[in-house]
Each structure stands twice: as structure tokens, then as C-alpha cells.
Amino acid sequence: MANKKTENGSENRRNFLRLGLMSSVSAVAGASLISNLATGEEKKASGEKVRVLTPDGKMVEVDAESINNYPEAVITPEESRKGIPDKKFVMVIDLSKCKNARKCVEGCQKAHKLDDHQEFMKVQLMQNNEEGSPYWLPKPCFHCDEPPCVTVCPTGATFKRDDGIVLIDNERCIGCKFCITSCPYSARTFNWGHKEKFDDKSQPYSPETQVPAAEGTVMKCDFCPDMLRQGKLPYCASSCPMGVIYFGDKNEDIVTNGTETVSFSQLIKDRGGYRHLEHLGTKPNVYYLPAVNRQFPVERGFDVDEEILDRYKDVPIVKEFKEQGKL
């Protein structure tokens, strides 16, 4: 064998390659990244730092934006209202794999520059009835096909795009909060007070990134259209270590969680996919796979901050666990 293998686990690299090869678009996006770097143009600053090693042996912290560049800068507001043509995005969340690792929440918060408590993606502890088994429910915005929030918006600040994504334009939102009250899934949050980061105008605002946020406007999970335009998964899906979150295009009928790519319809069929609160007629675009034969006992999810744990204190099973001394 003439070819030489590097020592670092070939398995790892294999996976990495596999994914890389499986992805057609990202290759192109990657190429554009390179060219951006080479020319050194179109660089912006943001608070995020990345640590790299320079060839002269120095560990340097550079601004992420200065070596990374998203193409969303060229997305016009009209385009961001229309969406990516001929797509219809769906998310499938496999409840049997979720163990409340909260990596999705963190990834999302980091990407959208959210505060600790502002969560587009919430992980809730649910128990349908006393006998029913408790389960962790990661809850993004459901991007409903009959979105009550969009219906009630008086200025069209929140809108539904042709690709199924429901977005908010915080430059148009007047902060009446009607959409928050009309959302049965409590998916929306409000920027109550002023924060310094709102003033950071280094990155031009786009509804597709929701950065920078603005005081007195509504925000929510956006399915990361900026990533989708690069052919990449939303942050929650890519940061989940368990592969709980599948994401894809319903028209293509393909969803992926980063490590495996499967047919959406087949997955829903095999695993008994359902939508939350179906009877409300909101027609969500987020599907759940029931927590059958789950990979982790629900108790594993309590392995988080005491403060986060405290959120679930009203769930009956938590009380029970506490009595049994499991917590």
C-alpha cells in the first residue's frame, strides 16, 4: 500500500469524508469560502472569536466573521420574504433519542446571539397523563402551514414564506405581541429591554439570521435559513450529539440529522410520526417520533444544571423522582 494513513482515527475521518461526499451543495459553498478567504474581501466583525494557529506557531484569536463569511449579506429583503424556491422544509424530532443534553439549545443560542434564558429551542419535560411515560420534548417553532401568528399580525412583520418557514422581520415588527398570544405552542419570545448587543450593527440585519435583534420586537426559531442557503443543517440539528433532529426538504422527501440521511415519509411511517396538538388545525411542519424504546432513560436528562432542573419541578414525575431519591 503506497498510501499513508494518518494516525488520527481513520473512523473519524471516514465519517467526515462520507458526509462531505454526501453533500453536493456544501462543496460549492466550501469553495466559495476559500475564495473569500483568499481575496480577503467582505469581512465583518462580530463578537465571536475563533482560535487558530498561524504557520509561525502563534495561537491567534481572530474574529469569526473575519475569516468566515455568510452569503446572507446579499439576500435582499424581498428574497428573504419569498424563501428558497421550490423547497418545503420539515423537521423531524426523534423523542426516543433525546436526553436533554441541551446542545441544540446552546448551538441555537450561540448562533442567534441569544441570552442565556432566551431560547428559540426549548427542551420541555412532558408527561401526557399520570401513567404516561415522561419524555423530553425539544420544541422549536413549528412553522405551521396554518400559522395563527401570521394571521393576526397587523403589519405583516411575521410572514410565511413559500418554503414553509415562518419568519419575523424585526424592522417591521411594532411589538404588539398579538402573535405571542395567538401561538398555541409558546414559541415566541419578546425583547423586553434594551441590550448592548442590539447596537452592534456590524452585521446587517436580515430576517434570515435575526441578528442583530431589536428592542421591543418579537423573535423566535427561524429554521436558520442562512444555513439552509449554504446547504447546511440548522444549528440545533448539527449540534445535537444524539442525532435527535432530522431536517430536510419535504418536496425532496429527504431528511438528515447529519449522520444519517433517510426518506422523510419512510421515517414518519416506520416510526409513527405525529405532530403536536394536531387537533388545533395549525398543521405544523415539525414532526415528532414517539419515545418508543428510548435510548436513554428519562432520568439521564436530569444531568443538567440545578437551575435548569428547577424548571421541571412542577412535572409530576419529577416530584415522584425526588421522593424516590433519584434526583
Binding site: 423523542l95 426516543s96 401513567e131 404516561g132 411515560s133 396538538l277 414517539p290 424504546n293 428510548r294
Partner: peptide, 12 residues
């Protein structure tokens, strides 16, 4: 019920 995620009809 726990393993197989039992549910009831029209819980709501």
C-alpha cells in the same frame, strides 16, 4: 407504557 410511549385517545 414507558418503553413504548403509551398514549390515550383524545387526551385533551
Amino acid at each position: 407504557l414507558k418503553e413504548k410511549s403509551g398514549y390515550r385517545l383524545m387526551e385533551g
